[in-house]
Amino acid sequence: SEFSSRSGYGEYVQQTLQPGMRVRMLDDYEEISAGDEGEFRQSNNGIPPVQVFWQSTGRTYWVHWHMLEILGP
């Protein structure tokens, strides 16, 4: 990996993601499973900070930056 740390990767995702971009989950996290795909909606200063609309659940759920792989527009 070109990223030395999880936080470095998270910063990359945070700087790159734009609303509407497709993402894939890298880790299991509460209701969301690794491999689930969705659409980035928004972020804020909460914890976790990233709101994604997940195809698997049909609704939005908040996750962490480093848990997401960017699939593209």
Results as ranks from 00 to 15, higher is better:
53 F>S: 06
48 P>S: 06
4 S>F: 07
57 T>H: 13
32 I>Y: 03
65 W>Q: 03
18 Q>A: 08
13 V>S: 10
48 P>A: 13
39 E>Q: 07
38 G>E: 00
5 S>K: 15
36 D>Q: 00
30 E>H: 11
25 M>R: 02
15 Q>H: 00
59 R>Q: 12
32 I>E: 00
5 S>N: 10
70 I>V: 09
41 R>N: 09
24 R>Q: 05
41 R>Y: 07
67 M>G: 01
7 S>W: 04
51 Q>M: 05
69 E>S: 10
9 Y>K: 10
40 F>I: 06
56 S>H: 07
8 G>A: 15
14 Q>V: 08
10 G>C: 12
47 I>Y: 15
69 E>Q: 00
57 T>I: 14
23 V>I: 07
16 T>M: 13
37 E>P: 00
22 R>Q: 11
24 R>H: 03
20 G>R: 04
40 F>D: 00
10 G>V: 13
17 L>Q: 02
46 G>R: 15
47 I>L: 13
16 T>R: 13
5 S>F: 14
44 N>T: 15
46 G>Q: 14
59 R>W: 01
15 Q>R: 13
15 Q>P: 08
11 E>K: 11
71 L>R: 01
50 V>L: 02
72 G>Y: 09
56 S>E: 06
13 V>D: 07
25 M>P: 01
52 V>T: 05
67 M>P: 01
63 V>P: 06
27 D>G: 07
66 H>A: 12
55 Q>K: 11
24 R>A: 02
6 R>T: 14
61 Y>T: 15
24 R>M: 04
55 Q>S: 11
7 S>I: 12
55 Q>T: 13
70 I>W: 00
31 E>F: 09
20 G>L: 01
42 Q>R: 10
9 Y>F: 02
40 F>T: 05
48 P>V: 14
64 H>G: 06
15 Q>L: 08
11 E>Q: 09
47 I>V: 14
11 E>V: 09
20 G>V: 04
20 G>W: 07
57 T>D: 04
4 S>W: 15
14 Q>L: 01
46 G>L: 13
54 W>L: 10
44 N>R: 15
35 G>P: 07
7 S>N: 14
11 E>W: 11
1 S>C: 08
3 F>T: 11
59 R>V: 06
3 F>G: 08
43 S>I: 06
45 N>W: 04
20 G>A: 04
16 T>D: 06
44 N>Q: 15
23 V>L: 05
41 R>D: 00
29 Y>S: 06
1 S>V: 12
31 E>G: 05
57 T>P: 03
11 E>N: 13
27 D>H: 09
72 G>A: 14
34 A>T: 05
45 N>Q: 12
55 Q>E: 13
50 V>D: 05
14 Q>H: 05
55 Q>Y: 14
12 Y>E: 13
6 R>L: 11
35 G>N: 01
16 T>W: 06
8 G>L: 12
26 L>S: 01
24 R>S: 06
71 L>C: 02
2 E>F: 15
49 P>S: 00
63 V>D: 06
35 G>R: 02
56 S>D: 01
5 S>I: 15
65 W>T: 00
69 E>Y: 00
62 W>R: 15
40 F>Q: 04
41 R>I: 15
35 G>I: 04
